[in-house]
Amino acid sequence: MKILVFGKDGQLGKAFQEELGVRTSKLLAKPVVQYVGSTECDVANEEVLTQLLNHFQPQLIINASAYTAVDKAETESDLAFAINARAPEIMAQYAADHDATFLHYSTDYVFNGEKYGYYLEDDLRNPLGVYGKSKATGEETIARVFASTRSNGQYAIFRTSWVYGDGGNFIRTILRLAKEREELKIINDQFGAPTSADWLAQVSLNLALDEHAHLRRFRSGIYHAVPAGETTWHGLACLAVQAALDAGVTLRTHPSAIKPILAVEYPLPAPRPMNSRMSTDKLHQVFAGWGDMSKLEQLNQPWDKAVRPYVANLAKDGLI
Results as ranks from 00 to 15, higher is better:
253 T>H: 05
238 C>H: 09
201 A>R: 01
227 P>K: 15
243 A>V: 07
230 E>I: 15
226 V>Q: 13
225 A>G: 02
227 P>T: 13
245 L>A: 08
239 L>S: 07
238 C>M: 03
209 L>T: 02
209 L>A: 04
238 C>T: 13
236 L>V: 01
203 V>R: 07
254 H>N: 13
222 I>Y: 12
212 H>I: 14
241 V>F: 05
239 L>F: 09
216 R>H: 08
245 L>P: 10
236 L>E: 03
215 L>H: 00
232 T>D: 15
202 Q>D: 12
238 C>I: 08
245 L>T: 14
249 V>W: 14
261 I>A: 02
246 D>T: 01
255 P>Y: 02
252 R>A: 13
236 L>D: 06
251 L>Y: 10
227 P>W: 15
255 P>N: 07
230 E>G: 12
225 A>I: 06
247 A>S: 06
230 E>A: 15
219 R>L: 06
256 S>K: 13
247 A>F: 01
211 E>H: 11
259 K>R: 11
241 V>A: 10
215 L>C: 04
247 A>M: 07
204 S>E: 09
209 L>R: 06
202 Q>N: 10
218 F>Q: 02
256 S>Y: 09
247 A>K: 04
227 P>H: 13
209 L>M: 04
217 R>S: 13
231 T>L: 01
258 I>S: 07
217 R>P: 04
254 H>S: 13
212 H>W: 10
235 G>W: 04
219 R>A: 00
241 V>Q: 12
249 V>R: 13
205 L>D: 05
201 A>N: 05
219 R>W: 03
210 D>K: 04
211 E>C: 06
225 A>S: 05
224 H>W: 04
211 E>W: 11
218 F>P: 01
232 T>L: 14
207 L>M: 09
254 H>F: 09
223 Y>A: 14
218 F>H: 01
241 V>T: 11
240 A>F: 02
226 V>D: 11
204 S>D: 09
246 D>P: 00
254 H>P: 01
256 S>V: 15
226 V>M: 11
252 R>T: 05
233 W>I: 11
228 A>M: 02
219 R>K: 10
223 Y>S: 15
232 T>P: 15
213 A>T: 00
208 A>S: 07
202 Q>Y: 09
254 H>A: 14
260 P>E: 15
243 A>L: 11
221 G>Q: 14
202 Q>F: 08
208 A>R: 04
247 A>R: 01
204 S>Q: 08
220 S>F: 09
236 L>C: 05
215 L>T: 00
228 A>V: 07
240 A>P: 03
247 A>Y: 02
218 F>R: 00
